[in-house]
C-alpha cells in the first residue's frame, strides 16, 4: 500500500484522512458517516452526520432531534463529495435505511459494508454487491457453523407452536430496530392475521416503519391489563424483556427468540429460550463468502465478529486479508436492553 491511505482503523473507528471523516465512529467526532441506525454504529453527539434519510430519522427517534449539529441526507446510489473524496451509499439489506458506504479517491475504491444480509427481507431494500478494491466486511456470523435456514421455515415453527399451545402466550424476543418489524412482516406473510402485540420499547420504531409504508397489519401495544389475556397470541418484545418482571403476567409464556445466535443450541439454552428461531439480519457464512467473491476485491478487511475465521478463509482463496478487530461493535443487543430498561 504505497498509495496515500484512503481509510485507516483508529480507536474511534475507520477514518479517512483525505476526507477528514469517520465511518460509524464509536465516539463523538466532527464528521461521521453512518451506515445504519443500530446503537453500536449510530451514536449521538457527532458534529455533522451523513446518512440515509431513514437512518437520520431513526437516530432522531432514538436520541432526540439534537443528536448532532448538522445532518445531510445521502440517497442510495448518489455520489457525494466530502472534502474531495467521493462517497456513495448503497443498500445493505440489514434494516430500514441501512447502507454500505463506498469511498473513492479516483484511484482506489473501498466499500465499507456496515452490517448486511443477503436473505430477502420484506421491510428493506436488498443488498447490492459493489465492485471494489478493498472490501471491509462485518463478520458477526463468520464461522461455517452459521448457515441460516430459510426464515419462512423458522416462522413456521412459531406458528405450529401456537397451534399446539393455544393456551400459552408466545413472547417473541427480537431487537427493536429491524428484527422486530421483519418478524412481524414474516408472520404476516405466513398468514397470521390476528393483531400482533408489542412491548412499549418496540413501539416507536414500529410506528416509524409503518409511516415509511411497511405493511405490518394490525399492531397493538400491550398494556398491563392485557397481559393475562394474551393466550395464543404473538407478543413482540426486546430480548431482555423475556427474563424481565414484565413477562410474569402472561399466561404460561413460551420464550421465543429470533436471532442468528439461536443456531447454536448452547447459546439458546443459556438464555433460557424455549423456542429458538434462527432469523438473522446478518449474512451467514455462505453469504459472507459469496459476497466477498462478488465484490471482486483483492483485499479484505474485517471489522468485527469472527474476524480471524473469515480472514483465514479469504487467504485460502488468494486474497490479502486482515482482521481489524475494531472495538465497540456487535453490542446492539446490549443497547437494546438499555432501551428496554429506559
Amino acid at each position: 500500500m504505497a498509495d496515500p491511505i484512503l481509510l485507516t482503523p483508529t480507536p474511534a473507528g475507520l477514518y479517512c484522512p483525505a476526507g477528514d471523516f469517520y465511518i460509524d465512529p464509536v465516539r463523538a467526532t466532527p464528521r461521521a458517516l453512518i451506515t445504519h441506525g443500530h446503537a453500536d454504529h449510530a451514536r449521538a453527539g457527532h458534529g455533522s452526520v451523513l446518512a440515509t434519510r431513514q437512518t437520520l430519522d431513526i437516530m432522531a427517534l432514538r436520541y432526540g432531534e439534537n443528536f448532532c449539529e448538522t445532518r445531510q441526507i445521502a440517497k442510495y446510489g448518489e455520489g457525494i463529495n466530502v472534502n474531495g473524496v467521493e462517497v456513495t451509499f448503497h443498500p445493505a439489506g440489514h434494516v430500514l435505511g441501512s447502507a454500505q458506504i463506498c469511498v473513492c479517491d479516483g484511484k482506489k475504491r473501498i466499500v465499507v459494508s456496515g452490517d448486511y444480509k443477503r436473505e430477502q427481507d420484506p421491510t428493506c431494500p436488498p443488498f447490492e454487491p459493489i465492485r471494489c478494491d478493498i472490501f471491509i466486511s462485518e463478520a458477526t456470523f463468520a464461522l461455517p457453523v452459521f448457515r441460516h435456514p430459510d426464515s419462512r421455515r423458522e416462522v413456521g415453527k412459531l406458528l405450529s407452536s401456537l397451534a399446539l399451545f393455544p393456551e400459552r402466550a408466545h413472547l417473541l424476543g427480537a431487537y427493536s430496530l429491524g428484527k422486530a418489524q421483519r418478524m412481524m412482516a414474516l408472520v404476516r406473510e405466513a398468514g397470521w392475521d390476528k393483531p400482533i402485540w408489542i412491548h412499549g420499547a418496540v413501539e416507536k420504531i414500529t410506528d416509524y416503519y409503518i409511516r415509511e409504508g411497511v405493511d405490518l397489519g394490525e399492531i397493538r401495544k400491550v398494556t398491563a391489563a392485557d397481559r393475562p389475556k394474551l393466550a395464543g397470541e404473538i407478543v413482540l418484545c426486546p430480548p431482555s424483556a423475556i427474563q424481565d418482571l414484565w413477562s410474569r403476567k402472561f399466561p404460561d409464556p413460551v420464550a421465543a427468540f429470533a436471532s442468528g445466535w439461536m443456531r447454536v443450541r448452547a447459546r439458546a439454552r443459556q438464555r433460557g429460550v424455549e423456542l429458538p428461531l434462527i432469523v438473522s439480519d446478518h449474512a451467514d457464512w455462505d453469504d459472507l463468502c459469496a459476497t466477498i467473491r462478488e465484490t471482486q476485491c483483492s483485499e479484505l478487511w474485517v471489522t468485527h465478529g469472527e474476524a480471524d475465521a473469515l480472514a483465514h478463509w479469504a487467504s485460502t482463496i488468494g486474497l490479502r486479508a486482515k482482521p481489524l478487530h475494531l472495538v465497540g461493535y456487535g453490542d446492539e443487543e446490549e443497547a437494546a436492553s438499555d432501551e428496554a430498561a429506559a
Binding site: L143, V264, D308, A309, H312, W313
Partner: peptide, 10 residues
Amino acid sequence: VLFAMSYDYV
C-alpha cells in the same frame, strides 16, 4: 482451522 475454530465455539 475452520473446524477447530467452530468446534471451539460450539
